[in-house]
Design a protein around this nucleic acid. Structure first.
Length: 259
DNA sequence: AACAATGACAACCGCGTCACT
DNA sequence: CAGTGACGCGGTTGTCATTGT
């Protein structure tokens, strides 16, 4: 890039690299006389050997009189963190909320000071939390399936004894399976999708707002993590669904586990 | 003291948008 | 309506300073 060309040299007649005090003075004088804008005229009118783009950048990021020089304050930092969480890398938008600070300044500050902080924040560490939860759910699912197998074995023993209602029991177990397994799968995958049916929304509430079918969150990120961090709530809903299934099998099988 | 690694900041580049012709 | 230039934005790079080994 410019490094290959060297700083302060002329490329197609334009100077590049760090600005000198003399150039700053010329540019400041130009803006004082003509105002901001028409940057491509600067070279001709101010006698600068800089292109318009470079002049605009120098003025906006360094020479503007309303710029606040010096360290970003803790208060400003918290604002940046909050606004970045909301808007992402929309630096100019963030800069509008911080008078005297430029988008470039905020962008640089974010990269050097806040990026690591953000990655180490709870919001970020919750990704590992998600992995842990998924592992736990996998274990629970396996445990549940094992218990089902044991229950089926017990039922088979019972039925060998009394030969009553085996066909009905199996059909009910199948129904139970069909209802529960997709929900267990849903819990694993729900981070990546929203409930599409009212039944799903009901089952997953209060993670999702059942009135609107759209989660009450302002950004997809919030939705994503907001949904994820309510898995405990989903657990209770799933358990209640289990309870419904249990009702299908009055006195026929051992009650399903409810953690 | 010398060197490498890292941080901080200024500046550049590419691209998208918009207004003007 | 297409072409063109100006401008703004976000990403990236270069340079210097500081810190660690």
């Amino acid at each position: 890039m410019a490094g290959k060309l060297g700083w302060g040299i002329l490329e197609e007649g334009w100077r590049k690299g760090p600005w000198t005090a003399e150039e700053d003075k010329l540019l400041t004088e130009y803006v004082r006389l003509h105002g901001e804008g028409r940057w491509n005229s600067v070279a001709r009118l101010a006698g600068l050997r800089r292109n318009g783009k470079s002049c605009r950048l120098r003025w906006v990021n360094y020479l503007r009189p309303d710029l606040k020089r010096g360290q970003i304050t803790p208060h400003e930092e918290s604002i940046i963190m909050e606004l970045h969480a909301r808007w992402g890398n929309r630096w100019s938008t963030i800069a509008r909320s911080l008078p005297g600070r430029t988008d470039n300044e905020i962008k640089n500050y974010w990269r050097t000071h806040l990026k690591k902080k953000s990655e180490a924040s709870p919001e970020h560490s919750e990704r590992s939390k998600a992995r842990l939860l998924r592992q736990q759910m996998q274990q629970k699912r396996q445990q549940f399936q094992l218990q089902q197998q044991q229950q089926q074995q017990q039922l088979q023993k019972k039925n060998q004894q009394n030969q009553v209602g085996m066909k009905k029991i199996m059909s009910l177990l199948d129904e139970c399976d069909h209802r529960l397994l997709p929900l267990v799968q849903e819990r694993e995958d729900m981070v990546f999708m929203y409930p599409s049916t009212s039944e799903e929304q009901c089952l997953l509430s209060p993670v999702f707002n059942s009135d609107t079918s759209v989660p009450e969150a302002s950004s997809s990120e919030e939705i994503l993590w907001g949904g994820l961090w309510n898995l405990d709530d989903v657990q209770s809903n799933l358990d209640s669904t289990c309870a419904t299934s249990k009702a299908c099998l009055p006195n026929m099988i051992t009650p399903l586990p409810s953690n």
